[in-house]
Design a protein around this nucleic acid. Structure first.
Lengths: 219, 219
DNA sequence: AAAAATATTTAGATTTGTCTAAAAATATTT
DNA sequence: AAATATTTTTAGACAAATCTAAATATTTTT
């Protein structure tokens, strides 16, 4: 099954949006892909005839099992390329997303599997997101939102909730990255902010908005 | 100046075809790019308005200096990716061309320069072709066709005249690759075949067609 | 230097992915 | 439950890159 770059972008967007909602609306997709709802409808019809989507007009859409398989392949490529850029080419983890958006559409299966091997079959990308294996199996980890962490639990940052430059700028400034270890000291009811202790460093304050964007695993 | 994949393919094809002829005809391009002459004419007009070509209807076409600069950028990417595939991912040198045709269209300048550095700034790709540097400077080497080599001269294979699978199959069978050292023993007038000695191995026969496809530098 | 052959361009159609504007379906408010 | 607002789809248009068929240039042959 050969897909165009545009078709792949729709499949990928639906995959990510349905993680949250189960089913995805036309407007949601249009906003995500920076296109108009009318264009989305056209593409949904096309991908449905290719049996990649389950789509009822006016009722939203989700991936068929075939569509999901393709989406996992694209996500795999995206995350492997991000790992390559950071681990081998010394890119900063906040500057790889755009380039990986291009590289994920390179079609050679052999290339992807050799790249995977070259990188040592990594299980997580530089943002802490899991990398599907060549069969499309993706190992989830027990991760919890920093906001939901109980005080006095030790944890390690393992993923971020978005790739927005604003978020990444703030994390860089606070020197928080994937793997950073911390412990929640106390939580404030007033503004839902946290005081946390960074391992080997001092105490800092984390706003509600920032805590919401950080996922950690307990250690 | 942003180009589509299709535009880049035209620019690259003209670059390679004009190496030989100086100027390139519509039919030549159509054959090379697997498209029809009418489509070529349209694209030539478009690229001319973008000031990348010097084109007079019915008179053939060549690259402007701006076009040449872009072509060198594409060739650079192609050859760096081929080097990556062979040196780092253990691809065979005969199976990288198609994948590199895709990778050469990835646009990030930073990616290319970091890749170059990661590979140790190689000067030649796995086929022995020179890799332009980031300023578009391409270092040629003194290379001569195997057919023109005088008997009893020692030489080293440094490039092949085509990437056809048939040629690559034959070279694989004879275990000739870039870097293989040899010495011409004698030449036969009848069929223009050669008898050569491979360094560290026995004597073999090379047909006129094969010799024509091999370029060597004397050592 | 005509005639014939070949090469190139023009004209008009097609496909893909997008758009705007208007119509239809669904959801929300009063 | 009517009226209003929102969401989604349909209809028709457009740009990019291609095609076929026909017209026009150029080159080669006689």
């Amino acid at each position: 099954m050969h897909l165009t770059v545009s078709e792949e972008n729709y499949i990928k967007a639906i995959f990510h949006l349905q993680e949250a909602d189960g089913t995805v609306s036309t407007n949601q997709l249009a906003a995500n892909i920076h296109t108009k709802p009318a264009s989305v409808t056209d593409m949904l019809k096309k991908l449905t005839t290719k049996r990649l989507l389950l789509y009822k007009p006016y009722q939203g859409v989700r991936l068929s099992s075939e569509g999901r398989k393709l989406a996992l392949g694209i996500v795999r490529k995206h995350r492997l390329w991000e790992s390559f850029l950071v681990d081998k080419l010394q890119f900063g983890w906040d500057e790889v997303h755009e380039v990986a958006e291009e590289l994920e559409h390179i079609s050679s299966k052999k290339l992807v599997d050799k790249l995977d091997q070259f990188l040592g079959n990594p299980k997580f990308d530089p943002h802490g997101d899991p990398i599907p294996d060549s069969n499309g199996v993706m190992h989830a980890i027990m991760q919890v939102n920093l906001l939901d962490l109980k005080p006095h639990t030790k944890a390690e940052v393992c993923s971020v909730g978005s790739q927005s430059p604003e978020l990444l700028e703030l994390l860089k400034h606070k020197q928080i990255l994937i793997g950073t270890r911390l412990e929640v000291h106390c939580k404030f009811e007033f503004d839902h902010s946290l005081e946390i202790q960074l391992e080997g460093r001092g105490k800092i304050n984390i706003s509600q908005q920032l805590a919401q964007a950080l996922f950690v695993k307990t250690i």
